[in-house]
Design a protein around this nucleic acid. Structure first.
Lengths: 294, 294
DNA sequence: ATGAGACATAACAAAAACTCATCCCACCAT
DNA sequence: ATGGTGGGATGAGTTTTTGTTATGTCTCAT
């Protein structure tokens, strides 16, 4: 049963080209360039030592050998493709259910999720959010991302990234508004606050030893809104730096003062200890860890 | 009929592993490392979003999905492999017939022919030699390599490489024998001559303007023997440099005096003008040209 | 406990596949 | 005949896949 195996990708490309009778149309169906098809067929011909197509005036025609090969491999590939596709569909029917904070979803996970989908086209992801801690017995959830110290009773967890605080504002505000050279200057600016993260300003000010600067701020019902307000130049928000890399890279926000403060809490992926992660969950864990690290 | 296609190599590796029930044994059958099999299966599982094997105590077992997939793709791959193999065998049944000088065969072509076979496993090569010019009407030959000026009546040709002459000897002779600092020193050495290339010494000496040094030499019935005599330290041979690169690289021979002389003749591949090269001949032409150039 | 067997994983290297840009060639409409 | 068009081939360079080595983990048998 051993022996040399033929190159399967060229064979498949050949099968498609033979079915359509044209390299160009095969390249369209396969979503690659015409050049790629031409080359793959040439590779196969080199491997087999036979011409499979006659290159003719305006087009191609199968040789005798080519026709014989197509009759054999065409149906076989159809079968393989169908079987794989069926399995992939079945698998997508039971998606991986994630629960995350909406801030994480909007600012961190969604912008990179396309990469996960590309790497694992068979795994569908369903996201849900809530501010309240997840209850795995009640909620139909496989994995959750939560902020915490890393130990939840009856749960296992994987530490993703720390929660690092630093004030941020729009570059326009920094240029055009009252100066923002040091924490003292915050007194001349509006402080933007997220309802569910009221302590962030306190924690940061405590971290730099300037609790005296704590004031009431303008409150929003979610961190996403708060950051959006900062982008719009409405004031200075206290930012979770690991979630804002995109906004900072693209110049919508700038971090202020160079005084980051790391909170004792960190983002973790958690799951119930009595339900070990299945294949999909493990794939997501490996991926999300790499994303958080890189 | 379009749609995304699954990765075929991982599928094939999976089919083998599923049939054998072991990654390690699959790796042996496929001639790759165990690690490669493990990774290919992991790629496929990632693509499909499903576990195909249960990694168990001491070994693996197919999951439900894995078994279903194997039943579909296993036979399909068998069919593809069989069809390709059959074509390849058929094709090898009519080998490419080459006629070359035995020197070219031994010193240049044979040492690199394995690369051609690796690139075109479907093309079998049959070599024959003769000193006399090829007669395509009489000899059952597809392509020949011959020395000449590049134009043969009724034939097409591809220039391969020039014929460059330079004396060579064994490094031992150079060290232990009488000195060989310049052409004059040849008088104190035996000159080795090939019967069919008697003019080589004359041409070289003429090229450096020292025809006065021409003497009788020790004659051998082929260039291969002549070079072998030089390797054994029996004297100084007049070498065709393009054929001796291997011997020189590996220290069996050293070129002398740094005075190469290019003859007006060059090695060409030739074929009858009324029989254009078929697929195999074209493959060989492309390959041999690249080898001669690189 | 200890070592042997079997799969997983990280880091790196090689080979395959692909792309872009450009040719070449046959056909067709001016 | 001339230039446009459709279809395939090819050179050069890049990206993806595939593979390797070395090492780790886990389980079983001694």
């Amino acid at each position: 049963m051993a022996g040399p195996v033929p190159p399967f990708n060229p064979l498949h490309v050949f099968a498609v080209a033979a079915r359509l009778g044209s390299f160009t149309r095969a390249s369209e169906e396969l979503g690659v360039s015409q050049s790629a098809v031409s080359r793959q067929v040439a590779v196969l011909e080199g491997y087999l030592g036979t011409r499979l197509f006659q290159r003719e005036r305006h087009g191609i025609g199968l040789t005798h050998e080519g026709a014989a090969l197509r009759d054999e491999v065409g149906p076989a590939f159809d079968r393989i493709v169908a079987a794989a596709e069926r399995l992939r569909q079945d698998s997508r029917a039971t998606p991986l259910r994630l629960r995350v904070y909406s801030t994480i979803a909007a600012k961190w996970l969604l912008p990179r999720l396309h990469r996960f989908e590309a790497a694992h086209p068979g795994i569908a992801v369903r996201l849900s959010h809530s501010v309240a801690p997840v209850d795995f017995r009640r909620d139909p959830i496989d994995l959750a991302i939560q902020l915490g110290e890393g130990s939840w009773p009856g749960m296992e967890s994987l530490r993703l990234m720390p929660d690092i605080l630093q004030p941020v504002c729009s570059p326009r505000l920094l240029e055009a508004g009252p100066p923002l050279r040091g924490p003292d200057d915050l007194q001349r600016h509006r402080m933007l606050v997220s309802r569910y993260r009221r302590d962030d300003w306190r924690d940061w000010l405590a971290g730099i030893g300037r609790l005296d600067l704590l004031r009431e701020g303008m409150e929003f019902t979610s961190s996403v809104l708060t950051y959006q307000a900062a982008v719009e130049g409405l004031g200075v928000a206290i930012g979770q730096m690991r979630l804002l890399d995109h906004d900072i890279e693209e110049g919508r926000l700038v971090p202020l003062f160079g005084l980051p403060v790391e909170r004792p809490l960190a983002y973790h992926v958690i799951w119930p200890a009595d339900r070990p992660p299945d294949h999909k969950a493990r794939a997501f864990l490996a991926w999300v860890r790499a994303e958080a690290a890189g």
